[in-house]
Write a protein that binds this DNA or RNA. Structure first.
Lengths: 207, 207
DNA sequence: TATTCTAGATCGAACGCTCATTCTATGTTA
DNA sequence: TAACATAGAATGAGCGTTCGATCTAGAATA
């Protein structure tokens, strides 16, 4: 259960960074299994392989650990949407990457943490701020991407219409997080195909 | 803040039922604001207007309160899908009720509790069981409804294909719970219209 | 009708425990 | 030796839950 460091770094700075990452990995596991409030510093410290008190050398308090976990999780989403925008044939890229993204969303372990993050955002202003800033950045990226696809197909949408399409696309994706928890038996590959069709239709909707 | 009983019932049985409901209403509020683990029996008892100890006359423990809240929330979803099936012109009924359902999902207060429930289901086997049984019942209802719409339009889908469409439809709806938390500024009416279009397209997808 | 009885409603203190956090002492290393 | 890493005990608050004492209202009794 304990996370051991395979190659301990030599310099102090990188050693500290590794120790921080070790705590975050342990915290992510605990938060996934017990939620932000159900997980205790004692549990996290046991899995991270250090004393409870020592964690406070690397994080000011539990809230700071939660913030770091949330920021870390959202960063992957941000790089993903940015990558999408950079693809050459954007429409095919979007739809092909979608299947991959859908399967990611359908992984129950990561879904549990992502849903926990949004639940916490609904009541914790600090987490809400991190989540909403990341979401705004993602939406901006997606709006540019979708606008490019749509205007290539001859649609000249208002910003509002584009924003709405982004919302529907995001709802579709994020909804999978809830689906995989509510119905763990769903057929992941087939649902991914079905989502591809839905995205295709969405991109052809009237403005 | 305290919930007072407007018309105290005369009989013992209904008085007890009212008291139970009073506790559940207070608990729902606390769970929405602080989460299942963040809310304390002391807080709930204060809002319900009774002593902490007295709550244990109506519920075995905190877990039982959580279970009751979860079951209560899911019951409304179940009646909604059952109503849908009973509508005469099912396709129009589905799409028209969709807009209404979408606006419900976009209410931030109720969204917070619903997301909390799924987050808890990901780690609490008791809650998971309640959630998954309700979800299965909803999916069964929706499968009958969608199959009727599709065969009226000449599609003869496999059960798997119908199940996949139900998953996509559910993902779209449930995703709105996360969207309204991540982006509270979204335009609710316009997004509802856009969702109607997406459902329309979904019902016309090839088998 | 007046009084006693009784069973459930209710309270509030108390219990044992766990929590996040702090502090002090010791080990380690350059 | 100086600075940092680390452990582990200590602290005080808050948790879920239990329990015995009181209150209350209606039934039983006289």
């Amino acid at each position: 259960m304990q996370i051991t460091d395979p190659t301990p770094p030599t310099t102090d700075a990188s050693r500290a960074a590794a120790r921080r990452q070790q705590i975050l990995a342990a915290a992510a596991q605990c938060f996934r299994e017990h939620g932000f409030h159900g997980a205790s510093i004692a549990q996290i410290s046991k899995i991270a392989g250090m004393s409870a008190g020592h964690i406070y050398h690397y994080f000011e308090n539990k809230e700071a650990i939660i913030g770091a976990i949330v920021a870390q999780d959202l960063e992957t989403l941000l790089t993903l949407t940015a990558e999408l925008r950079a693809a050459c044939n954007v429409r095919n890229a979007l739809i092909e990457r979608a299947a991959e993204g859908v399967l990611d969303q359908l992984d129950p372990a990561s879904a549990a943490l992502k849903v926990e993050i949004v639940a916490e955002a609904a009541r914790n202003p600090h987490v809400a701020r991190i989540v909403r800033e990341a979401d705004e950045a993602c939406r901006r990226e997606l709006m540019v991407t979708i606008r490019a696809i749509r205007s290539a197909a001859g649609h000249d949408d208002t910003p509002g219409a584009t924003a709405d399409m982004v919302e529907v696309l995001a709802a579709l994706f994020e909804g999978l997080l809830l689906r995989t928890i509510r119905n763990p038996d769903l057929d992941r590959r087939r649902v991914a195909q079905r989502i591809q069709l839905a995205i295709n239709d969405l991109l052809d909707q009237p403005g």
